[in-house]
Amino acid sequence: MMRIDRSKLRRSIICWLVLLPLVVVVLFPFAVMFLTAVKPSEEVFVYPARWLPTTYRWANFTDMWEATKFGVALKNSLYVSISSTILAIAVSIPAAYAMARFPFQGKGLYRQFLLVTQMLSPILLVIGLFRLAAMIHWGEGNLVDKHISVIVAYGAFNIAFAVWMMSSYFATIPKDLEESAWLEGCGRARAVWKVFLPLAVPAMTVTAIFTFINAWNEFAVVYTLIRSDANKTLTVQITDLVAGRYTVEWHQVMAATLLATLPVSVLFAWLQRYLVKGLALGAVK
């Protein structure tokens, strides 16, 4: 049954050809990362420079794993990113629903306020955040060096995007679907749960990807709020390998960066299918 659809094949070739320049530019830094990561350290700076290493030194990865405490950092990154994503989505869904379905006073104001939360240059914001964290008592000390402070901050900073993205999308979900559910005797809340939310999955997926990535890659906040090695995330550990050092072990840095992108890439590969056109269509009939 492996019949190749010829028009699809032609379309595929055209699509890939058009995408080619972008694909090359995108993959270029990854090639740089990979080939540097597997080079023996003495080959990183050779002149004339070469793309390929003479021998592939896979041990760079294990060395790096030790040097960056990769395992712990990976766990922390996952924990912080997933938690903050859940937080952001959880508070944003009701808000987005309100924005999409109700006309109400202060809607524009609320939207503006959310935008303002995005507008401050994060570099200066962190000092305020740090003071805030230092002021709040938590357990035996304050919120400095606690994951919860980072999670709440990330959650808050992602609300603007989450609300906006989801409300734009929610607005495209036909109202009559819910309304017909009301007619069938569903309460409004139940109708939202049964009819509306399943249709909103693609929007939530996109939003979740965005929030997760933001948290995964964020540096300034986590660098300021988190102090101990046991609590540091991947971005901090990796950037620590580079910033302001007299000598940089480039092969380790590249190995670490490459490995840090893996979980996210897998996430992309898995989630992109939820963006497929027509997911909403099935329900619309």
Partner: peptide, 22 residues
């Protein structure tokens, strides 16, 4: 709808998987 779309989408999104600093 084309062959390898999933791969293409993943590739296009890849730069996002690396932190800006890196």
């Amino acid at each position: 709808d084309f062959y390898g779309r999933g791969v293409a989408r993943t590739i296009v999104m890849l730069p996002w998987s690396v932190s800006l600093t890196m």
